[in-house]
Nucleic acid binder design. Structure first.
Lengths: 204, 204
DNA sequence: CGCAATTGCAACTACCTGGTTGGAATTGCG
DNA sequence: CGCAATTCCAACCAGGTAGTTGCAATTGCG
C-alpha cells in the first residue's frame, strides 16, 4: 500500500461540500470539484461512486458536524432560546448546511438515499430537547425543533424575502436573530407551561 | 394582425411555472417548456427574452397570485394566526410559490432581476399586518411576516426534516399546521400586548 | 531496492444545453 | 380574397456534461 488515501478522500469531500453548497446537485460540476481538491477526476468515482452518492456523503458529514458543534444544553425555555441563537449564528457565518438541506429538498423531493445514519443523529437531537424541556410531548419537541431549524436555516437561503419585506437596514441580521430567539423562547415557555400546569392556572 | 398572442404568452407562462417549480432555474429545460405549452421554442425568446427573464415573469406572477388569494384580514392575534393557517393550506396543496422562492434564493443568491414590482406588493402585505395588529412596530410586523412565510414555505420544501425528526405518521400535516398557527398567534399576541401595555402589567 | 497500490494525465464517448436562423405554413383583419 | 403578422418546422451552432479508459508516473511498505 502507498499514498495517503484518507487525505484524498477528505480533500474531495471538502471541495465537494463547497461546490454542492454553492450550486446544488444538478449545478455542481464534477470537474470543478476535482480541480478544487487538486485531485484527479476519477478519484471521485473510485471513492464515492457517482455524483449523487458524493452529495449524500457531503450532506451526512455536514449534518453531523453542525449537530455536534451546536448542542442543546442547559434547562428551561431560556436555554432553548439560547440554542436557537447559537444555531442562527452558526448558519449565518456558514450557510453551507442550510443550503445543502434546501437543495436536497428541492432537487430530490425528500427521497434521500441514505436516510438511515442521519435519522439516528436526529433522534439524539429530539432527546436533547426533552432534557432541556422535561415533561413536554415528544411530538411537540419535534415540532419545536422543526420550527427553529426552519427559521434558522431559511434565513440565509431567502435573502430576498427579508429585503423585500423589511428593507435593507444595516443590522437586519441582529434584529432577525433577536426575533428568532424570542420566538423560540416563547414557544418553549408555552409548551413547558402546558407540560406542568402552573400552580394557580389550570388547563385551557 | 392575427393569432391570439395573449393566449400564447399565458400557455408559455403556465408551462414555465410548472417546469421552474419542479426543476429550478438551472434544471429547467427550455425545450420542455415549449413542448408542454404546445408552442414553438422561439416564442419564448420572442416574448420573454431569455430563460432568466422568463423565470422572473413566472415568479412575479405567482407571488401576486398567492398574495391576492391569501389576504390578511380581520383584527387581532387570532386573525393573524388564522392567516398563517390559510397560507399553510395554500402552500401545502400547491407548493409552487415556496419552491420558486427557494430556487431563486439558492440559485441567484437574492440578486433578483426585477425586484421593483414585487417590493410594492410586499409593502402592501406589511400594511395588512399593521391593520390587523394596530400599534405594533413596523419592523416587528415585517419580522412577524417573515417568520410565518418562512415556516409555511419551508414546510413543503423540506420534507426530509419532518420525516427525520418527527417520523412519518399520517397526520403530520395536520399537526404541523396546528403548530404553525399556534406559533403565529402566540407571536402576534406578544407583539400586540407590547404595543398597548395591559392595564395592570407595565412594560417588560 | 522492489513492487503493488495509488494517482495523474489526457483523450474520448455519447449526449444534452440555450439560443439562432431561414423558409414555409397558418391565421384572420380589412 | 389579399396580405401582413404570427407561428411552425427542422436544422444548426458552440459549448458543456457525467462518466470511462489506457497508460505512465509516483509513492512508501516490507
Amino acid at each position: 500500500m502507498a499514498w495517503n488515501t484518507e487525505r484524498t478522500r477528505e480533500l474531495l469531500l471538502a471541495a465537494a461540500t463547497e461546490e454542492f453548497s454553492a450550486k446544488g446537485l444538478a449545478g455542481a460540476r464534477v470537474d470543478r470539484i476535482a480541480a478544487a481538491a487538486g485531485v484527479n477526476k476519477e478519484r471521485i468515482y473510485q471513492y464515492f461512486g457517482k455524483k449523487d452518492e458524493l452529495f449524500d456523503a457531503v450532506l451526512a458529514a455536514e449534518m453531523v458536524r453542525v449537530m455536534t458543534e451546536v448542542p442543546i444544553t442547559g434547562s428551561g425555555p431560556e436555554s432553548f432560546g439560547e440554542y436557537a441563537g447559537r444555531l442562527f449564528d452558526r448558519h449565518t457565518t456558514d450557510g453551507v448546511l442550510p443550503r445543502l438541506l434546501f437543495w436536497e429538498g428541492l432537487e430530490r423531493g425528500g427521497d434521500t438515499v441514505s436516510r438511515a445514519t442521519r435519522s439516528d443523529h436526529c433522534a439524539i437531537k429530539v432527546g436533547q430537547v426533552l432534557e432541556v424541556l422535561p415533561g413536554i410531548d415528544r411530538t411537540d419537541a419535534a415540532d419545536l425543533l422543526i420550527t427553529v431549524i426552519t427559521l434558522c436555516d431559511g434565513w440565509p437561503v431567502l435573502p430576498q424575502i427579508d429585503t423585500l419585506l423589511a428593507g435593507s437596514s444595516a443590522d437586519r441580521t441582529t434584529r432577525r436573530r433577536a426575533f428568532i430567539v424570542r420566538t423560540a423562547t416563547l414557544l418553549a415557555e408555552a409548551l413547558a407551561a402546558e407540560a406542568k400546569p402552573a400552580p394557580e392556572a389550570a388547563l385551557n
